[in-house]
Amino acid sequence: MTKPPLKTRRKLTIVDYICFGLVGAIIAYAIYRVSDVLVYNWNWSRVFNFVLYYDEESSSYVPNLLLLGIATTLRLAFWATIVAATIGLIMGYMRTSKNLAMRMISRCYVELVRNIPPVVFIFIFYFFLSGQLMPVIGLDDLDKNGTFVSSGIFYILFGDPKLFSNFVAGALCLALFEGAYITEIVRAGIQSIQKGQWEAARAVGLSRLNVLRDIIFPQAIRKILPPLAGQFITLIKDSAIVSLISIQELTFLATEVASTTTKVFETWIIVGAMYFILCYSFAATFSHLEKRALRARR
């Protein structure tokens, strides 16, 4: 047996060093400007107190506004993804349907969402949802003292019961918005399945539902999982816009922290870092899982 040739080690060339040097110089200049020219009194610890603060009474660290905010952001992303995926699955199938009405409805939905700025879309839907839909569903009259509502599980899943209807409205707005993008992902997934698969499934006499359930969806879902994971991360970032309709997630609370402490730079740098850590760790996890799935399939 002959061995494959050893990989040649990648070496840094002069060009690489010049690039690094340039980036370093720009950063150094920015730091110089900030510390020397900009007269600003940095105070990180005040803002850090809003992430975790030391509680004298129980003598332990307790999560404060910003950490609570990121928990709400995660809850929002979680529920919005589930609802958006459901919308996307149904609408995505309708996009590929033979029925003209179904195609038109789903097409209108997608185009409407994609051609309106997200903020405007969310304003419209929020005022519709909170004004019309919520009273109809009866979420406003939720019994705050019910055994389930006051339990810890409820808190982990939905946050503060007092803000529940507000939370649901925010999650629904996000879901309706992201659902359009997932619709397009699902459509592409279904359309990527070869015509022969449909034909073979029909030729053995499977019913329409069984064709989808046994042949088309299992194959399509494998293909759309990576872009779906990417959309989940996008959704975490997009959730910042629901701060405009007073959903108390990370960005909303950050504006409050920034205005009470007047430490604008520190607050937003920390919040940026929190978003980055959250999104990047999800991205890294997903790409790790994807690689593992690829290897397993071989």
Partner: peptide, 11 residues
């Protein structure tokens, strides 16, 4: 029916 391109279900 048997097709030119087999069309087995790959999953």
């Amino acid at each position: 029916m048997v097709f030119q391109s087999f069309n087995l279900f790959p999953h």
